[in-house]
């Protein structure tokens, strides 16, 4: 299976530029939507659910953002129904051990597909996502 749509939730233009570039390499006709904070991304997901439109297969999520940060977004997102198929990749420049610990508690608590990727990113490997999608179908 292929990935059709991804969300980038980040307030750093350079990171967004990089991610877009790498995703373009993966597939030219991939739909990429970007959001400058968690609140904007969450509102978009709510409207998708309301209108029965399929959710993006992958969400690239920054931690430090204004209005609603990455952790707050995760809290709200994980409460929603029918989100199990959405793969979340946390992208951060933080090497703070506490952020890593927090990520692990989310994984243990929810069993959701959440990765923790520390910047810099040189390439994207989305095979694990498609592999899981194949298993699910």
């Amino acid at each position: 299976m292929r990935i059709n749509s991804v969300y980038i939730v980040d307030d750093d233009t350079i990171t967004i530029f990089g991610l877009r570039k790498l995703l373009a390499k993966y597939s030219a006709d991939l739909v990429v939507e970007e959001f400058r904070n968690g609140r904007l991304a969450f509102d978009s997901i709510l409207s998708l659910l309301e209108n029965n439109i399929p959710l993006p297969e992958v969400i690239f999520l920054d931690i430090n953002m204004p209005v609603m940060d990455g952790w707050a977004f995760l809290d709200e997102f994980l409460k929603l129904p029918n989100t199990a198929g959405v793969h979340i990749k946390i992208i951060t420049s933080s090497i703070d051990i506490r952020d890593r610990e927090k990520w692990q508690t989310y994984v243990k608590k929810t069993g959701h597909q959440i990765d923790f990727i520390t910047k810099p990113i040189y390439e994207l490997n989305l095979e694990d996502v498609t592999h899981n999608m194949d298993l699910a179908s």
Partner: peptide, 8 residues
């Protein structure tokens, strides 16, 4: 964050 961006 900045150095990671540079590197990328």
């Amino acid at each position: 964050s900045h150095t990671a961006n540079f590197s990328m």
